[in-house]
Design a protein around this nucleic acid. Structure first.
Lengths: 189, 189
DNA sequence: TGTCCGTTGCACACTGCTGTGCAACCTACC
DNA sequence: GGTAGGTTGCACAGCAGTGTGCAACGGACA
């Protein structure tokens, strides 16, 4: 059933999020199903990872296009972006670990469109002098993106605190002043 | 011989730097030696990784204590630190990938002292109002550290450019103004 | 010449995973 | 009652990697 398939995907995200090297057996067990059933839905481990990646890419792109279309200052838009990216990044944090290794190529390829949209978001911020220009947009956007995922991937994941930390940190590294950053994010811890 | 042992370590760093999942066989071959010989020096894969980690920790600590002792402003000290940390981070980038997974615990444990020294460096910068205080030193230092390693780990590793990017970015995320950051790093690309 | 020591080559056992084949089973639906 | 589809249990082949045992080799050194 589609229901089973979805459950496997959800559980896989959870299990692999804790241990990226978890096998099909671990995932199956955690999903309350037999290993053979998982293979029924996903012919190979790569299929599973690819499906997961496609899901992630779709969610991130949805957020990005949404935010990109909004009428707001670039830095405010960035805050909005991180706020909405955060849960996604945390949920799919396993892809960060898998990005290197045998599935790296597949993942990297699927994330291509995301990279473009992201660079565009930063570029527009730079063009309107809201973000600093000491680094090319393509590189800066990747760094910021990496930081968000790195924090999401972190062991210390304090949930809310981390989202706030990620937002402020990325704003700063894009050249927004501390005062402005805190103003955007809000004073309350 | 000790010579062989050292060569294995060096080569292991190189090979695993490109593919963290490289086996003992790959390392042996790359070192111009037989697999059996590697096991002669390192009874298990964990031993190899642990030795590599100890090396890395020693090198980083050497840099950190050195920099920490210098008489200079905290931000200038940070620039010095990154400049000297960079080659080390790049060389041992494999540990970033291995930090998660079965060796994670061993690696994390050995890096404990590094974390402390690092937090101290940042804390002193915050206390002298050179670094912003919107985030606790322990967290901020870890983030900055993570960024440096993330860039070092990056595929785009452009060498010099990356070192510069890492320095500026980390300065910014610690609340140093863009003007001051560029002044510290130097104008030239 | 003899001896030590690191290295080699090969064989072996073991483990843990992937992916497949197939018969049986259960449930929903007609 | 019959059928179709998802699920199960189990067996099997295969592969890659780890770690070990052992006899043989070869150079350095006395």
């Amino acid at each position: 059933m589609t229901e089973t398939r979805d459950r496997i995907l959800d559980v896989a995200l959870e299990v692999m999020g804790q241990n990226p090297d978890a096998g099909m057996g671990d995932i199956a067990t955690a999903a309350g199903v037999v290993r053979r059933t998982v293979y029924g839905h996903f012919p190979s481990r790569l299929d599973l990872v690819r499906t997961l990646t496609e899901r992630a890419v779709n969610e991130v792109i949805a957020v990005l296009t949404d935010v990109n279309a909004a009428e707001a200052a670039a830095d405010a838009r960035w805050v909005e972006f991180i706020a909405r990216l955060w849960p996604v990044a945390h949920r799919y944090r396993v892809l960060l670990a898998l990005r290197r290794g045998e599935y790296g190529e597949a993942i990297h390829g699927l994330f291509g469109p995301v990279d473009e949209l992201l660079a565009d978001l930063v570029k527009r911020g730079q063009d309107s002098d809201v973000f600093a220009q000491h680094l090319p947009a393509a590189l800066l956007s990747q760094l910021a993106y990496g930081v968000v995922f790195a924090i999401a991937d972190s062991d210390l994941s304090n949930g809310i605190l981390d989202a706030r930390a990620a937002t402020i940190t990325t704003l700063l590294m894009m050249g927004v002043s501390g005062r402005r950053a805190i103003e955007l994010v809000g004073e309350q811890p």
